[in-house]
């Protein structure tokens, strides 16, 4: 990382911290998804033993794999390894689309993009610096969320299984393979949007499109269509990377001052 990219990251972080509109969702969404809901699972699993409503199809798909588990353990296991991985994917998408929207569309909206074009960095350097500048804070938020989630889950693991349950292979794939790929995808999507959207809000509304595949993942799993195992997550990460490459080629060639001022 060179000094320009470092300066861009510091600037983008300060911009996010300085704006309630950006900062609040960056705090609240991870808190709900990765702290409050997991805490509810840890506490609720003990009492919600009579049945696992709405997840019957998923349990059927899992088959005999978890036959030996009691209902509390089963609920906890499904939460840890099948439900929260999908929720978790929303964190990098949310963080990178907020920072990306600010970094690309926000700069256009606030007429600061043109100020950047007058500095002695090439358009390619600026593009790379802005992508890295958006990705690093988003990944930090994602990693912090994973750490908080891991602490809560390990408390649950000790309660229900008598051992630490986090991180397992699935979560390592999710954190270090799928999340970075999905982060970059959301950022490139924002770059793509930046040539069309004129305001931060407009860009944020368009970012809803990226959440759709994640919702489909959640519904597909709950409906018993498929199960997110290590292999499917590995493939998912690879698919995201291919999409990243295509989006990068497309957005980099479209990242020209004429379209952004």
């Amino acid at each position: 990382m060179n000094s320009i990219q470092r300066a861009m990251i510091i600037k983008d972080i300060k911009e996010v911290i300085g704006s309630k509109q950006m900062l609040l969702p960056m705090i609240i969404v991870p808190l709900i998804m990765m702290l409050i809901l997991p805490l509810a699972l840890v506490i609720g699993a003990r009492y919600g033993v009579s049945g696992i409503n709405g997840m019957d199809y998923m349990v059927k798909t899992l088959g005999s794999k978890f036959n030996e588990l009691d209902n509390s353990q089963l609920l906890f296991e499904i939460g840890l390894n099948y439900m929260f991985p999908v929720f978790f994917l929303l964190i990098p998408i949310m963080a990178s689309s907020i920072i990306g929207a600010s970094s690309f569309v926000g700069e256009k909206e606030h007429k600061t993009m043109e100020s950047l074009f007058y500095t002695p960095i090439s358009i390619r350097e600026l593009f790379v610096a802005k992508v890295i500048g958006s990705a690093v804070p988003a990944l930090v938020v994602t990693l912090l969320s994973a750490i908080v989630f891991g602490i809560v889950m390990n408390i649950g693991g000790l309660l229900y299984f008598g051992r630490l349950v986090f991180p397992n292979i699935k979560w390592l794939i999710l954190i270090f393979w799928v999340s970075p790929a999905v982060t970059v995808m959301a950022i490139f999507f924002m770059v793509f949007v930046s040539a069309k959207a004129n305001t931060f809000q407009e860009a944020q509304q368009m970012s809803a499109f990226i959440v759709v595949p994640v919702i489909l993942l959640l519904l597909g799993q709950m409906g018993g269509l498929f199960i997110l195992n290590n292999l499917t997550l590995g493939i998912l990460g690879a698919v995201f990377l291919v999409i990243d490459y295509i989006l990068m080629r497309k957005t980099a060639s479209g990242f020209v001052p004429e379209k952004l001022i």
Binding site: E15, H110, K111, T112, S115, Y118, I261
Partner: peptide, 17 residues
């Protein structure tokens, strides 16, 4: 850009900094 300084009404400063 190394040799020029530009101040225009369309190139502004960061409001949150």
């Amino acid at each position: 850009h190394k040799l020029c300084g530009v101040m225009t009404e369309t190139a502004l400063m960061y409001e949150n900094l």
